[in-house]
Design a binder for these strands. Sequence first.
DNA 1: TTGAAAGCGCTAACAC
DNA 2: GTGTTAGCGCTTTCAA
Lengths: 340, 340
Amino acid sequence: MKKRQITIKDIANALNISPSTVSRSLADHPDISLITKERVIEFTKVHGYKPNVLASSLRTSNSKTIGVIIPQIVHYFFSSVLTGIEDEAEKAGYKIFICQSNEIYEKEVKAVQALLETRVCGVLASVAKTSARYEHFQDLIDNDIPMVFFDRICTGILTDRIVVDDYAGSHNAVDYMVKTGCRRIAFFGTLSHLPINNNRRMGYEDALRRNGLPVDPVLMRVCDNYTDALALTPQLLALPEPPDAFFAVNDETAVGILNVVKSLGYKVPDQVSICGFTNSVLSEYCDPMLTSVDQHSYELGATAMQLLLDKITTPSDNHQLASRVIKTQLVVRNTTRPLS
Amino acid sequence: MKKRQITIKDIANALNISPSTVSRSLADHPDISLITKERVIEFTKVHGYKPNVLASSLRTSNSKTIGVIIPQIVHYFFSSVLTGIEDEAEKAGYKIFICQSNEIYEKEVKAVQALLETRVCGVLASVAKTSARYEHFQDLIDNDIPMVFFDRICTGILTDRIVVDDYAGSHNAVDYMVKTGCRRIAFFGTLSHLPINNNRRMGYEDALRRNGLPVDPVLMRVCDNYTDALALTPQLLALPEPPDAFFAVNDETAVGILNVVKSLGYKVPDQVSICGFTNSVLSEYCDPMLTSVDQHSYELGATAMQLLLDKITTPSDNHQLASRVIKTQLVVRNTTRPLS
DNA sequence: TTGAAAGCGCTAACAC
DNA sequence: GTGTTAGCGCTTTCAA
């Protein structure tokens, strides 16, 4: 026998007042007398009344919920962004509904569907690597759901976005490696349609060019996880002209490279330099500790949420889209040489 | 101008049928003629109808949502459990509503409140380290919300639970270290009321005793994160009789110990052995790779969700609580010596 | 200061 | 095979 939750009507009957008075008391409406309010509050406490948010959301057409579409929370970067998102949401009295795409396009589409059905007030999204179509996101826009893309944005969709300065981050890191004597720097990136990858690659290429170094396609590979790095790194080191440095688009990949390089007997950073991206906790756990590009992930999440809340509370029809950039910062540790 | 979503009534009017017929068509009710169903489906596709789950949940008193209360998703163990939970939930057609307690009692209480208000069909919870009171969980029970505790259970509350065999896991690990020659093994654990900690400590103590080794309180410390391990480890190594091995309740702590031990010039595992708990990806990232106790976290999450779904679908009034145990497995890597 | 009544969008008896 | 009707629990005009 499932016990029925107590309702406003129950309170009204018990107290011999009307449901509307109860509702107003709970909402602390100024018209209601203090005595009445106190009686109501007292009753809710004693009897453990829990407002049914389903009902109030339906009635007010406001679910006070934000949908978050995120690739994978196992990754330090995303779980850290999520913390920023949650903290801001909580301050503003919003709940968040997290959907993991697991980098799978189909799951992303389903997530959008679920968020639409849940009548979320807004959506924060970072797109899956495999997503090459964007109609599902357009669907959100078409239904007037405010949305903000973060980190992995979707250029085809006209809406606010917040990213990290991937180009500068990657440019600075590579520039630093060149300045410390590296001449053949390999690039391990992601294969996807996302601007984030182009930007990081361009930062890499431009840093080389500005330093008068050649851009060698042989050194540029698709590899963005630990396991693949274990397989690919030995191939590069076996080249006639092997790299003397590696730049990877995330820390897991960088650590994979590091483990291979060490196991093959190279000295890090004397013979081979390595730099990652994200500056996750991981970078302090490996040995030598990893030089990495900090993305200020918490700040990214918090700012994304603030942007979204702005859109929700002050819906402006002049659709000039905000485009924020979070600065990165190169954190030099011991997988790269010091500046002489 | 916020665009109103299209409703069942709209479809009914457009198609000159009644709302109930539309509803039944969408639910694929056997009574409805194929032609009608097709007309309805066609219309929903063309006009992008999204059912309002708020309304249907309210009407049916079934939100098809499971609440999950979890300490911190940044940790590999929990995010990995979460994946198991999500996969099972999805199979069964349930959404999940994730609440992070961040190990803070007050946030845990708020989470329970939110879940109650959202009218979730059930709750999966792993309790915060700082929670010493449990009325909030009792509140769920009192409202007949099926619930299952996982990993960090709450002994005061009578409900289903699923844990890892912490005692055996820790016993085996310590026993292994003794068998490989360690004589003074330090224990780094958590300070909390949770059984999980007692069990791990007892496993440690019993393994020592069965091998005829003394249990020295000096070697047993409260320390369960990377930063604290950096501070505490040197103190232990400076003892007149320093430990020759460390057993930590999680991998982050173990890596912290490892980094200190190495930096002080000790050889691992020759002079000092180290073992962690969880077997997170982390254990392959450090050097030497970390020996750790695998907790089968994905399986833990999946099983927890299955247990909960069982309770939800077949609510038995005979409250005999299920208590499942997931086996652990010692994964030997290079921070411990081989068995001779 | 409070109450009556309508309705958010959906479902499910019950009727025909 | 389809329609009528009532109501899930809440909020909010409008009236008193």
